[in-house]
Design a protein around this nucleic acid. Structure first.
Length: 882
RNA sequence: GGGUUGGUAGUCUAGUCCGGUUAUGACACCUCCUUGACAUGGAGGAGGCCGGCAGUUCAAAUCUGCCCCAACCCA
């Protein structure tokens, strides 16, 4: 039984260990699971690149609210865990950790080091996640780089290739010169950087004419292939058709008119290079310009840069500016800050290089992808618009090849002679073409017998966008010649939670892949969470130094308090870290603990049988009936993922209605009906709180109910193991006079207020109280809790008071539409007290209001002994001889 | 530059879709009270031009337009 103070430092880790050791949240693998009741969650695996942050804590906790609620409210729940250790993030982690460069190692060697470093981080990460008490099934975990998952990824590649949805093309692609790989648009982000605007004089070829070009990237001068003027730029129109001579390098380039020129920037004349930005790429394609590649794959200058060959592009930029200045071609140089596209992983400015890469075709099916997004239920609904805008704004197919050492290889070889693509057999996967042989001896196209392995690897999303298929055990059945699932009942997944920042790539890519493989939308519902901000609503960032570490928080507060905090904002909204909310959580945990102690002492074992209906007092029925409504409301709120409302609703009901109203009164009683009601309500409270306050409810459940539930074979809840495995409460269907209950609590409330205002202790004796309201059946409850010596109830009688009309209240909802702009006149007349009450009618400003259209505002005056108290519809007269 | 979302007491927030005259709750603050668990508790109180300006309407936190601020997404 609960005693003393609650000690979360001891209790929480104990339950976390037991939940893992006893596999409390295991998915029932071996038994057939009913696909109609199973609840499956597919979580995006966190990138293995560091430790747990508040975003993780928040995200995992939200997922856990759903998992715990659905597990109690429905059937089997599948809540797996994955690690995304296949990608650039993990490679860079390894490089940083071991202070090495992947280029210095043989591929397999470096991969081994990655696995080693990630393993340490994963172990630590697992421990951290387990210390949050989330109800993950730790027997169902995966790593995106493990062989099973490699097979799924390569199967996906082969299937999409077979469907004709993948192609290989040599074209401009976004390139990170630091990581030396192609990357996709979603891996770039904007960064404000200091730079210079350089005004450079360009002579017109074969004349004395000259014009000015402003550029932030002088190192691209050798890559200049054209100069553009806006067709409406009248002042510079005469240049169009001429040629310009590029300073220092001397090559001549055409001057062309094109409306993509931004006339507002610099001189309004712009140079087009190979390639400065995406505009350059468009111009290159539209105007069929030359390629002059001045920067190589490592960010150094090529032979096109002549004297500057071999310099890093940034060094070359400085050198070229100096030389321009010396040559008199540098007219001006100004400091500016501008936004540049950088690789999100390393912060390096990206380049655009023409390289041969693999793509997944997407642009032809954006309408379909929009439609499958629409078929999902979005929590909150408004987040769909982000998806919608992303899909509508798609401009590139999905670039999936990466020039990295680590990762999942393309299962592809090329004929050395004719470049024919040879794809691995599905049965052989996973393969590494660097060490494995192609499935054919001779090229199917030309018969040549030597092959070149593809040494690129798949991008990280190529794998992590398959998590629903990984979790469901998707595979190729060679004998049947079809794709199968080990757990078809899991797919489509019921829920996909994630942050709002990854809708446009992770979620989108997952939808596309899974849809193309199965023809089915992978998720029934997606839940989008916001970002955790600091106490001042600022984004947490290392450079600002406002980062709150989960470890620090957990040292000071119980996990359940962080769960209380995490439930505090509407799903989808960004919300600040608030220590106050954690303290409020602690208070609630303590209140629940203390109230449980009182329940235990008021209704000790043996657990009372359900009394005959007529033995329940009015007050008991009232509480249980109110609790029925609470159960219904709460179930709905959890189903709507409205955790914040559920939290506040339940907290309010438990604290105010149960503790302040019912418990205070029940203290006076020692009957079986009270004991039964206390126990019944308390059990239900533990269950209702269980998804939110996972630890304290489990501890109390075991202290007070688990043993009894285990022993009693016919226990209604079925399970004794864990409160998290019992059934979610259903309404009991208790009938009660709700109005009488409300009146009785109003009477108690008004007497409390009377004592408070008269500075009396709450247990002070009141000599006589007369109640003018129907609170029959509650008399003993009122006298007991308020210590009333003599209580008289007048259920039907009017109070012996005189009433004075003090005004008229209009019911605007009916009067407004009916009388329209006459309302102003009516109000004016009422204010002047120019009206007449005639029975049920009110004559005012030339109109007659009837029935509910108005209410007479009255002040009650009492001349007799004692004091008149009013609350809602009850009138109470109290006499107290001090 | 385009779009999305938000702006409500000192702080955080409900209400906004579907307009109705007393705007919800918590924290902090003030007053009082040791009730058979909890003073880390209880009973009260004070605190708001609902971002700004205009419009629609008998009536606007709520609808419309413009503007300001913040975050995010896309350029």
């Amino acid at each position: 039984m609960p005693s003393g103070e609650y000690d979360p430092d001891a209790v929480e880790p104990r339950w976390q260990r037991r939940w893992v050791d006893e596999e409390t949240y295991a998915y029932p693998d071996d038994d057939p699971v009913d696909p109609n009741t199973v609840f499956s969650i597919d979580t995006p695996p966190p990138t293995v690149s560091g430790s747990l942050h508040m975003g993780h804590l928040y995200g995992f906790t939200l997922q856990d609210f759903v998992a715990r609620f659905e597990r109690m409210n429905g059937g089997a729940t599948f809540f797996p865990f994955g690690y995304d250790d296949n990608g650039i993030a993990s490679e860079r982690l390894t490089e940083d950790e071991l202070d090495i460069r992947h280029q210095d190692f043989e591929r397999r060697e470096f991969q081994a080091k990655c696995r080693e470093v990630c393993a340490q981080y994963e172990e630590q990460f697992t421990e951290n996640v387990q210390s949050l008490g989330v109800s993950v099934d730790w027997d169902h975990t995966y790593q995106t780089i493990e062989p099973r998952v490699q097979r799924v990824s390569q199967l996906s590649f082969v299937d999409l290739y077979d469907q004709g949805r993948e192609y290989r093309e040599k074209a401009p692609a976004i390139w990170c010169p630091e990581c030396e790989t192609a990357i996709s648009q979603v891996e770039t982000e904007d960064d404000e950087q200091a730079s210079h605007f350089n005004d450079i004089a360009f002579p017109v070829a074969g004349g004395d004419d000259e014009f000015v070009i402003s550029t932030t990237r002088p190192e691209l001068l050798p890559a200049c292939v054209a100069v553009f003027v806006h067709p409406e730029d009248d002042g510079n129109q005469h240049l169009v058709g001429e040629s310009a001579e590029v300073p220092l390098f001397g090559h001549e380039v055409p001057i062309i008119a094109d409306e993509r020129v931004d006339m507002e920037t610099g001189s309004g004349i712009v140079m087009c290079c190979t390639f400065g930005d995406q505009n350059d790429i468009e111009w290159y394609q539209v105007h069929d310009l030359d390629l002059r590649v001045a920067i190589d794959e490592s960010g150094h200058m090529t032979e096109v840069a002549e004297a500057y060959e071999g310099l890093h592009s940034s060094e070359a930029g400085e050198a070229i500016v100096e030389d321009l200045d010396e040559a008199g071609a540098l007219l001006d140089r100004r400091d500016i800050t501008h936004t540049v596209n950088v690789h999100e992983r390393c912060g390096t400015s990206v380049e655009f290089l023409v390289t041969e890469q693999w793509y997944i075709e997407m642009l032809d099916k954006t309408d379909e992808y929009l439609q499958i997004g629409r078929e999902m239920e979005w929590s909150p609904e408004k987040m769909f618009s982000r998806y919608e805008h992303w899909v509508e704004g798609l401009q590139w197919d999905w670039l999936i090849s990466r020039q990295r050492s680590s990762g999942i290889p393309f299962p592809v070889w090329y004929c050395e002679d004719c470049d024919e693509v040879v794809v691995a057999d599905k049965a052989d996967l996973p393969v590494d073409p660097l060490s494995d042989d192609p499935p054919v001896d001779a090229c199917p196209a030309c018969g040549h017998d030597a092959f070149e392995p593809e040494d690129d690897v798949l991008d990280t999303w190529a794998t992590s966008s398959l998590t629903p298929l990984i979790n469901a055990g998707w595979d190729w059945d060679e004998e049947a010649g079809e794709f199968t699932m080990e757990h078809p009942e899991l797919y489509q997944f019921n829920l996909r939670p994630q942050g709002h920042d990854i809708i446009s790539f992770w979620l989108f890519h997952t939808l596309v892949k899974c849809y193309e493989h199965t023809g089915e939308v992978p998720f029934e519902e997606t839940m989008i969470n916001g970002h955790v901000l600091d106490e001042n609503r600022q984004k947490m960032s290392k450079s600002v130094g406002n980062v709150v570490e989960p470890q620090t928080v957990l040292e000071e507060f119980p996990v359940d308090a962080t769960r209380y905090w995490a439930a505090g904002t509407a799903v989808g909204d960004d919300f600040p870290f608030k220590e106050k909310d954690l303290r409020a959580g602690e208070k609630l945990i303590r209140k629940l603990w203390n109230a449980s102690k009182l329940v235990e002492s008021l209704a000790p074992e043996p657990y009372p049988d359900e009394p005959a209906d007529e033995d329940l007092r009015e007050l008991d029925r009232w509480l249980l009936a109110e609790l029925d409504s609470e159960v219904e409301r709460l179930t709905e709120l959890f189903e709507d993922r409205a955790f914040s409302k559920a939290r506040d609703e339940l907290r309010g009901f438990f604290w105010n209605t149960f503790c302040d109203d019912y418990l205070e009164i029940a203290k006076q009683r020692e009957d079986d009906a009270a004991a039964y009601t206390l126990r019944t309500a308390h059990r239900r409270f533990l269950k209702l709180f269980a998804p939110l306050l996972a630890h304290v409810t489990e501890e109390l459940w075991h202290d007070m109910y688990a043993d009894a539930a285990t022993q009693a074979a016919d226990a209604a809840d079925g399970a004794g193991d864990s409160v998290h495995l019992v059934d979610w409460p259903e309404p009991l269907g208790i009938d009660a006079d709700r109005d009488a209950g409300a009146a009785a609590t109003a009477v108690v409330g008004t007497l409390r207020k009377y004592k408070s205002e008269n500075q009396l202790p709450l247990n002070a004796e009141l000599d006589a109280v007369e109640v003018y309201a129907d609170v029959r059946g509650f008399e003993d409850d009122v006298t007991g809790v308020m210590h009333v010596a003599d209580l008289t109830v007048h259920p039907d009688e009017d109070a012996p008071v005189e009433t004075v009309v003090t005004g008229i209240d209009l019911d605007y909802a009916t009067v407004g539409p009916k009388y329209g702009d006459q309302v102003g006149d009516i109000e004016a007349a009422l204010a002047q007290e120019e009206y007449e009450i005639d029975g049920d009618e009110l004559h005012v400003a030339g109109v007659t209001l009837v029935g509910d259209e108005f209410a007479v505002e009255e002040e009650r005056q009492y001349q007799g002994d004692g004091e008149l108290l009013e609350a809602d519809d009850v009138v109470v007269i109290v006499r107290h001889e001090a």
